[in-house]
């Protein structure tokens, strides 16, 4: 059962020399209760794709194609949807977690306030109910001592805890879909491991569906069920995780894995240097 269907999504950016495609007709289907990875390097268009789903693109970008959210058998077209429709979906049906938790949390509101505001707005909960739920949520994402954490401010937490709180805020209204844009990139590996475990649990236990955008194939290998590899606005390869890492079809995927220490296709450092010097890699041609 699919929950989010992206069909022929095209994103153009207005430039002085006319529109240019940032995302050039991609298709992606997010299944319910799965983690779908969207991998790619900076500039591949993976982040704008995530932003387009929620209608968060800057005005200089135009979209075409279709993004359909399918909840309770009701299909909602998100591209070009009116403001009110999007407002009802953002945070409520589709929530987002960003790379840097210190900028996605409001620095001057207590954690409790940030959690309950959403619930009271979207779910029309009373003060007390919202508070109880907020506490339960913090417990869910394993923030230690939830009761006192509610009263604290974001800067009083470590980076990893802040990302947990940001996830809790995203989950406040029980969204069906979580868009996670490089959620662990700014974190240390030991902290990253915890966040990945949390994501997996949320998907397996609570039936959340996650679109995981990251450049880190190690992260993909740990948690993604499906992986789409994006490059220059196009999905070059999309496959179940195991298959992608063991039997990649596209040359670009192979080149990514070749440069990835510990992968099955890893090449020796000497070979990588030789390639770099021969400028055969895409980056050198740029």
């Amino acid at each position: 059962m699919s929950i989010l269907r992206i069909t022929n999504l095209q994103i153009d950016v207005r430039t002085q020399g006319g529109p240019r495609a940032v995302v050039d007709g991609i298709d992606l289907t997010l299944e319910r209760g799965r983690i779908h990875g969207l991998a790619g390097e900076s500039g591949s268009g993976k982040t704008v794709t995530a932003l387009a789903i929620l209608g968060l693109l800057p005005e200089s970008m135009t979209t075409s194609g279709s993004v359909v959210l399918d909840t309770n058998d009701v299909d909602t077209e998100l591209l070009g949807a009116p403001r009110q429709v999007l407002a009802g979906i953002r945070g409520r049906r589709i929530a987002m977690v960003f790379q840097d938790p210190s900028t996605s949390l409001h620095p001057q509101l207590s954690v409790g306030r940030q959690l309950t505001d959403h619930m009271r707005h979207h779910l029309k909960l009373g003060k007390r109910d919202a508070r109880d739920r907020a506490r339960a949520l913090l417990e869910r994402v394993r923030v230690p001592d939830p009761t006192s954490a509610l009263k604290k401010f974001p800067h009083q937490f470590s980076g990893g805890q802040r990302q947990r709180i940001a996830i809790a805020v995203a989950l406040a209204c029980e969204p069906d879909v979580l868009l996670a844009d490089e959620p662990t990139t700014a974190l240390d590996v030991t902290v990253q491991a915890g966040i990945l475990q949390l994501l997996r649990e949320l998907v397996d236990d609570a039936g959340l569906s996650v679109l995981l955008v990251t450049h880190d194939l190690g992260v993909m290998s740990a948690v993604a069920d499906e992986v789409a590899v994006m490059r220059a606005g196009v999905i070059v390869e999309s496959a179940p995780r195991q298959q992608l890492f063991t039997d990649p079809q596209h040359a670009y995927t192979r080149s990514l894995l070749a440069a990835l220490p510990g992968s099955k296709l890893e090449e020796s450092p000497e070979a990588l240097v030789a390639e770099l010097l021969n400028a055969t890699r895409t980056e050198a041609i740029e």
Binding site: V189, A193, G194, L196, G262
Partner: peptide, 18 residues
Amino acid sequence: LLAAIPVPDGAGRLPITP
């Protein structure tokens, strides 16, 4: 530190959280 590094082998093993 070493246990927390995800292994990119496609096996879907979660890294170990300390």
